[in-house]
Nucleic acid binder design. Structure first.
Length: 480
RNA sequence: GCCCUCUUCGUCUAGCGGUUAGGACGCUGCCCUUUCAAGGCAGAGAUCACGGGUUCGAAUCCCGUAGAGGGCGCCA
């Protein structure tokens, strides 16, 4: 049977990274099996509609390359693919259940759960709806309908017994029916609830594998009961472990970055993001960690999805991003970096060359501005302690001597390219019978005023140019 | 409160009855070197949540306990 998976986001205005992982797994499973990946927009909550947020969904799938085969924008055989456009369908199916006795009309007020509201909550116990409208006689129902009273349609769940289903990841899950209340299928405004729309749409769209976060696992028996009531075969359910924050709580908007756009803004590559989130809850069974999208398609296997929740670790994402940046062609790396160079840097320096120099070193491109700030402006107040380096055995005195010599040697140079500067510094080291490290160290400090720089002393000199390099050397000598 | 689920280095994970419990990020050190970084190598870091079983033998199977997460909306 052809594999059909879907990604069914709600238009909330941003793409949550956890949802993106769900989309990724659904996409990978479809591609891996030469199946079909469908996009369906779940916009049944009219109160929460956010302007333009469907665009965010399209854009997110586009930049990450999770292209869908059927969806609102490209159509397909089982449309429409937007739930608000499918309203008549839900009504039809809800009424079918009504007719067959699997559902009933409920005229209760919102939030009204029991006949005695005072009993609703005691000792923090929250009870579900008590199913009182089930007991309405046909005459009573007709009377209320005649009066034009608004109603919802609820699923009729027999409170005896239990339902067991087999989740592909978690195995057999059993829930006692007394735990399930008569959930609403069709809301007062005629829109279906998420739970109902999902079942109807997944069936009508021929979805074979339902992938979603495991927050839905305990409501799945209600779905199973619906499939049964309709006489439909339930799809395979694949619940995914949740992605947690570093502090162990659910990844939420208030705790830093959770939206795809946040990560894109920091310069994380879409492919590195996919690579990283693929590994939160799945592994290939080998020691491979670096994956391109094509590699993921090749290796992905739902059998290797894990059960335990995973904390999102931006450090590791950052490392992985660095790996992907290293794999980039120089032009691509430069195009990425260009977004992050301050204007002044772009104006005064050969940024193409700069990009080439730092490509092997940048993990998170949003770190670039502070990384290159020293090029445009030397902080003349850097600590002279920096000239003291244990490994290279440099001292303040020695550094001054070295810099004074270099000042003379370098100012005599006619050419100022890498070979010329390196040659001069190197022959100076040889003349002093010194290793090159003890020479390079003071030079790099003088040129940058920093303990850590994104590239070496010669490259910095080359970028700064002769005049500025010599100026910085004399500043250093003055401070020593 | 009731229900469901999860639990291997700080983090992501491998493991599926017999392993010196493996890898990766991060951390530390060494080597290399045009500093740092990168690269190469090494090290620290896990009484496999705890307690009982089953078994010649348990991280792996069973039962409890604890902790964590999730669900219990006319939200999705």
């Amino acid at each position: 049977m052809e594999v059909r998976t879907r990604f069914a986001p709600s238009p909330t205005g941003y793409m949550h990274i956890g949802n993106l992982r769900t989309a990724l797994y659904a996409y990978l499973h479809a591609r891996k099996n030469k199946g079909t990946f469908i996009l369906r927009i779940e916009d049944t909550d009219q109160a929460r509609l956010v302007e333009d947020s469907v665009k965010v969904i399209y854009e997110s799938l586009r930049v990450t390359g999770l292209e869908h085969d059927e969806g609102p924008d490209i159509g397909g055989p089982v449309g429409p693919y937007v739930q608000s456009a499918r309203r008549p369908l839900y009504k039809e199916y809800a009424e079918k259940l009504l007719k067959e006795g699997h559902a009933y009309r409920c005229f209760c007020e919102k939030h009204e759960k029991t006949e005695n509201p005072a009993e609703e909550e005691h000792e923090g116990v929250i009870l579900g709806y008590d199913g009182r409208c089930r007991r309405l006689s046909e005459a009573e129902v007709q009377e209320k309908l005649a009066k034009g009273l608004p109603y919802v349609i609820r699923q009729k769940i027999d409170h005896e017994g239990r339902t067991t289903f087999k989740d592909f990841v978690y195995g057999e899950i059993t829930v006692e029916h007394k735990q399930l209340d008569d959930q609403i299928l069709l809301k007062r405004d005629g829109y279906p609830t998420y739970n109902f729309a999902n079942v109807v749409d997944d069936h009508l769209m021929g979805i074979t594998h339902v992938m979603r976060g495991c927050e839905y696992i305990s409501s799945t028996p209600k779905y199973i009961l619906l499939y049964k009531a309709f006489g439909w075969e339930a799809p395979e359910h694949i619940h995914l472990p949740l992605i947690m924050n570093a502090d162990g709580h659910k990844l939420s908007k208030r705790e830093g970055s959770v939206a795809l756009s946040d990560f894109l803004d920091k310069g994380y590559l879409p492919e590195a993001i996919l690579n990283y989130i693929a590994l939160l809850g799945w592994n290939p069974g080998t020691e491979q960690e670096f994956f391109t999208k094509a590699g993921l398609i090749e290796k992905f296997d739902i059998a290797r999805i894990g059960k335990s929740q995973a904390c999102f670790d931006e450090k590791k994402l950052s490392w992985l991003n660095g790996q992907h940046i290293k794999a980039l062609k120089p032009e691509a790396a430069h195009a990425l970096f260009l977004r992050f160079y301050p204007e002044k840097t772009q104006k005064d320096f050969d940024v193409v060359k700069l990009s080439g120099l730092i490509q092997g070193k940048v993990e998170k491109p949003s770190d670039i501005p502070p990384m290159v700030a020293f090029l445009t402006e030397l902080d003349g107040n850097y600590s002279t302690e920096l000239f003291i380096n244990k490994k290279n055995k440099t001292t303040l005195e020695g550094s001054r001597a070295v810099l004074t010599d270099l000042q003379a040697i370098l100012s005599a140079l006619t050419a100022w390219d890498h070979a010329a500067v390196y040659g001069a510094v190197n022959s100076y080291a040889e003349s002093k019978a010194s290793k090159i490290g003890p020479i390079m160290w003071p030079l790099r400090i003088a040129l940058s005023g920093l303990a850590v720089t994104p590239t070496g002393a010669i490259e910095i000199a080359e970028l700064l140019g002769k005049e500025e390099s010599l100026r910085r050397i004399s500043v250093a000598i003055g401070r020593l």
